[in-house]
Design a binder for these strands. Structure first.
Lengths: 181, 181, 181, 181
DNA sequence: GATGAATGAGAATTCATTCAT
DNA sequence: TATGAATGAATTCTCATTCAT
């Protein structure tokens, strides 16, 4: 009876942890809140994740993966005949219109990584993967890198100021950057 | 008993709070640690800053001011005859060479605004002031805005990846952006 | 200039203290809250009332006085031709219909007095004064005493159960008591 | 280390809480004092009773049960051939002779319900149970209700004034009430 | 006289973690 | 394997009171 390893329980805990971080921030992540959110006994979170840090790493790793998947879906769907600026503007608009929780989560990861060596590789890996995805479209590594810089700066500023996305501005920004060097 | 009447007490507490955030991160900011760092009784920090958030606001405000002062000194010293990319590369290099603590601190507090609505106005104000400073050099508001986006994205990524600044890349990035739209 | 004694300030503080007790209970009475409620500096409450207890005694003393004044107004207005039960029912109904704050305050005083020797005389004095007032109507000290017992028990139970006053029941209660001994 | 696994821990904490209220009043009830009184670590009281209110509810519940048990023993022992007034006088005398701590405690917690909505149901339940017990003797619900009113008023006043019980007065009071309506 | 700064104690909670079962 | 009880440290915050001005 009962597998000696129950991956579903583990996954449920990770999902709950992400919801807790989304709601309360990285600082608000605790075994207790996650246990309550996942509706599992308190001991269960300690059992699957020996320390709070393990939980954090697992949760933010998954946030990073999901974010990259979102980006990848977008990259795959980009119309090569349209100007890149327009496509980027659409992506940013989609990501920040309506519920910004998902995007905020990604930057929550960055914040945590600034002071948490265990998270640094995840954040850095996410950045690199993002660049590689963009290179598929730009064809040019330098331009892809520039684009991730722009994307990160832009989304961060929009999240921090709570300002709405203005697609025309995003387009101008990207097109300015895309100009031949 | 003890040192009553200490007119600089408040300022000393803010300075200590900044040191604590630099050392332990935003999550590590607590009345206790600040009190210990400032060498004042615990009650004293509560007296001057009723809540942890007040402390955070004061710290971010001062860090932001100092950061803007640094930027302003740079802007004033920019040689208008040199390409802007070169000057920006110098600024980024200076900010991130040697001890990155200061820069990390700036972005740490900055990102904290993601989950602290009380910090949002300060972060937004800092951004706007930064843009205005840059406009003095670019002469063009849109370009100045683009430049802040680039700067934020760039510094955040360099801090997250722990990679060294490569001046040539920064130059290329800025010059690409600076191309007439 | 300025009187060396400012009775208005003192009175304003007492009034504020009563509002604080009404809102937060005896346990919620503090120099700080009273100062805020009275809109006077914190030091001012300490100055006029050296200790929290002094403040409590002053506040509950006034509550007692006001309560007795209310009772006296009723006693004076009692129609000697009507059955006493009816008049008592009217008093209880008036006291507990609408805002029960005032009545609750009186019993808050009793609660505090149970554990606060300094308040005991006030509570006891209030009880005796009440009995004396009622004696004016009953003419008979024993009946007056019985009536205060009944009144206290009744009002306490109504306050504790949050039940509405049923005048007929009050009348029956008092009339039952009023039967010749 | 220490004494883990202590199945009676919870009960010991409740007992300690009751002693603390008896000693320091409802206002003096705190996790710390209870922990000290029960000789358990501070965290233990929080573990078993998440909030101070939970502690209060548990304490009032138990005091109320014990009080009702006392009353029931008396009711069962009442001699139906004696006048009720005499029996009531005996009960009041027994309850208030010697150490009044127990009775004071009962009314202390009882009155606390004035400002603690969570305690109201317990206080009301206690009242109703008391009435039901008395109905066994009076046979008449209205008379039983009247008797609880009288008992509450009487005991409260005796506790507040620190006056001794005068059995004859109690008898007169009850007999006056007991007169057919 | 009047007051704001200061302080040390103590409040309720929350927590990560350990451990007996 | 899994879990709930237990614990001691740390959290924020409030407070009565003192005292220099």
């Amino acid at each position: 009876m009962g597998r000696r390893y129950d991956p579903e329980r583990r996954q449920r805990i990770i999902d709950a942890a992400i919801r807790v971080v989304a709601r309360d921030g990285v600082a608000g992540l605790s075994h207790r809140r996650v246990a309550a959110e996942a509706d599992v006994p308190l001991g269960s979170t300690s059992y699957h994740f020996a320390s709070r840090d393990d939980l954090l790493v697992a949760a933010l790793g998954q946030v990073s993966d999901e974010w990259l998947a979102t980006v990848e879906r977008w990259v795959e769907a980009v119309d090569p005949d349209l100007p890149l600026g327009e496509e980027v503007a659409r992506f940013v608009t989609d990501s920040l219109s309506g519920d910004r929780t998902r995007a905020r989560l990604e930057y929550e990861l960055y914040l945590a990584a600034l002071h948490h060596p265990g998270l640094r590789p995840i954040a850095a890996g996410c950045l690199d993967a993002l660049t590689e995805l963009l290179r598929r479209r730009t064809g040019d590594a330098a331009r892809a890198r520039a684009l991730t810089v722009l994307l990160d700066g832009l989304m961060l500023q929009l999240l921090l100021t709570d300002r709405p996305v203005v697609p025309a501005e995003v387009r101008a920004l990207v097109d300015g950057l895309a100009a031949p060097v």
